[in-house]
């Protein structure tokens, strides 16, 4: 009368394996990922006049302000023949992508407890959708960056020493690094905040502080020259290396080495895996502690 125990499709139990990722399940929910991205994109600028134009305005204005403050006022050099505005735009767009991934995913559990409390789907879909919808935004901003790039190269005599390197073919990998680095940290924070809310206070100003330590508005070489005793803080910040690499690929200026590239790769993979593990452990019971 009893059935064999072997043919169960799956089991719900309190046992937690360290890594319990069901990739086929995530794949089955890929449509949901797309629809979440679509929702984010559609709803973000509903009932605004400028709509998606805000994607352009944000980095442009920040770029102008940064150029005024840091280059014109504080006279930070961006290298001869590299227009400061272009230099800043490169840093800002990359930083924006990373920080929006981080802040967007860091409140995953809290912001979605309504849905998570009622329906099951692989929770990791939600932070992934944040990364993808931000990628779209980043794509548009990159387009703006390259438009200015072309303008400076062809219509102005300021960009005399700007040349894209052939390693630009690795740009997609670099973008992946930015997104997944932000996602990894975001997932760790979102998992911790389900129980201890302290971290939510940290995220807001922490991200802002981190920007100053990530060589967004200055070249790493200049920082090393001026503040050599604390330069390691900035130098081994993975985001610094990523931004310097981005500038190297696109503008041809940047301070990096093979060792640093390896270091970034390992750091990003480690943080992302750690985030994934913690996130997975949390998703089973977070609804009781959030």
């Amino acid at each position: 009368m009893n059935n064999k125990n072997s043919d169960w499709l799956y089991t719900i139990s309190p046992k937690k394996k360290l890594i319990d990722l069901n990739f086929s399940e995530i794949w089955r929910y890929r449509d949901l990922l797309l629809l979440f991205v679509k929702r984010d994109v559609i709803t973000q600028y509903k009932q605004t006049i400028l709509g998606p134009l805000w994607y352009f305005i944000q980095p442009l204005f920040t770029g102008v302000i940064f150029t005024l403050i840091f280059n014109n006022l504080a006279a930070i050099p961006t290298g001869s023949g590299v227009p400061p505005f272009l230099f800043n735009l490169a840093g800002i767009t990359s930083w924006n992508y990373f920080s929006s991934c981080l802040t967007g995913t860091s409140n995953t559990f809290k912001a979605n407890q309504g849905i998570f409390g009622k329906v099951y789907f692989p929770r990791v879909i939600t932070p992934l959708s944040v990364v993808f919808s931000n990628l779209l935004k980043y794509g548009i901003q990159l387009l703006v960056f390259f438009c200015f790039y072309l303008y400076f190269v062809f219509f102005s005599n300021k960009a005399t020493n700007v040349s894209p390197q052939f390693v630009i073919i690795f740009l997609p990998i670099l973008i992946l690094f930015m997104g997944f680095f932000g996602l990894g940290i975001g997932m760790i924070i979102s998992s911790m905040t389900t129980k201890y809310r302290d971290l939510t206070f940290l995220v807001g100003f922490g991200v802002q502080l981190l920007m100053y330590g990530s060589a967004v508005m200055y070249p790493l070489s200049y920082f090393k020259e001026k503040v050599p005793e604390y330069s390691w803080l900035v130098e081994y910040n993975p985001m610094t290396i990523i931004i310097e690499l981005f500038r190297h690929m696109t503008l041809g200026v940047g301070d990096f080495s093979i060792f640093k590239i390896l270091y970034v790769g390992v750091a990003v993979i480690l943080i992302f895996s750690l985030g994934l593990i913690i996130f997975n452990k949390t998703e089973k019971t977070f609804i009781d502690t959030v």
Binding site: W8, L9, I12, S13, K118, Y120, K284, I287
Partner: peptide
């Protein structure tokens, strides 16, 4: 909630042969 995998049980097991969809 446990059946629909929204939260995990403290002890015990649920075995199923089919996909569960929940309408809570």
């Amino acid at each position: 909630k446990i059946l629909s995998k929204v939260t995990g049980p403290t002890t015990g097991e649920i075995k199923t042969k089919g996909r569960i969809a929940s309408l809570l």
